[in-house]
């Protein structure tokens, strides 16, 4: 299964080992024959291209993207929704791909970092991250960029945040709004000041 490709990470090893080591709870008699882990077929579009997979039900959207579709731009950091490295867009909303099962995305439109720009034609947010040096090692950057693009859309759509003052007035794009809305994306290198500068520039250009 897909997650066995990360033997260096303890939780993945445990995940991979469970079907062999644990009795199949669906077999009340505890017979020696192990049933194969249940699989389900799922069809969704990724960056506009229809994709059909048959995956072990346990496969997260993140692992489907990375290990089955080989779209490795979306990163696995904590695998528990805490770091935001796996942030991608599903039907226009940013989510943690690590906390969602692939089989639950039948019919969905998924957008990853690979779908928003190319080295020759960067998305404005990608270009702004380069211009403002909004990264050091770069591992969190795809998630930061996916989140940053969504943050501007969410403010434009009038979705309030913890930093919003008047709940009935139009929301202004301020440093405080951007910082609060980006709190689900962690940067271990601490490039936050430059990430904020990049997002601010794109927001102002779009204003």
């Amino acid at each position: 299964m897909s997650t066995s490709m990360h033997p260096d990470i303890r939780r993945h090893t445990r995940t991979a080992a469970a079907p062999q080591g644990a009795p199949d709870p669906r077999r009340a008699g505890g017979t020696a024959v192990q049933a194969a882990p249940p699989k389900t077929a799922v069809t969704f579009t990724v960056n506009g291209t229809p994709r059909t997979l048959t995956v072990d039900n346990r496969t997260t959207l993140l692992d489907a993207l990375r290990e089955h579709l080989h779209l490795t731009g979306t990163k696995k950091g904590c695998d528990h929704g805490q770091c935001g490295a796996c942030t991608c867009s599903v039907n226009g909303a940013r989510i943690n791909a690590c906390l969602s099962l692939a089989v639950m995305h039948d019919g969905d439109a998924i957008e990853t970092i690979e779908g928003i720009g190319t080295p020759d034609a960067l998305d404005p947010m990608q270009a702004a991250f380069v211009k403002h040096d909004g990264f050091q090692c770069g591992y969190c950057t795809p998630g930061q960029i996916q989140s940053a693009r969504a943050v501007i859309d969410e403010i434009r759509a009038g979705i309030p945040s913890h930093a919003t003052g008047d709940l009935t007035a139009a929301i202004e794009i301020t440093d405080a709004e951007i910082r609060e809305r980006m709190s689900g994306n962690i940067c271990r290198c601490g490039a936050y000041a430059n990430i904020l500068a990049a997002i601010t520039e794109v927001a102002e250009d779009r204003a």
Partner: peptide, 16 residues
């Protein structure tokens, strides 16, 4: 209710 909701989790998690 809005104030409590936006005090919780992250933007990604609240979307889901």
């Amino acid at each position: 209710l809005t104030r409590a909701l936006v005090a919780g989790a992250s933007g990604q998690l609240r979307n889901k």
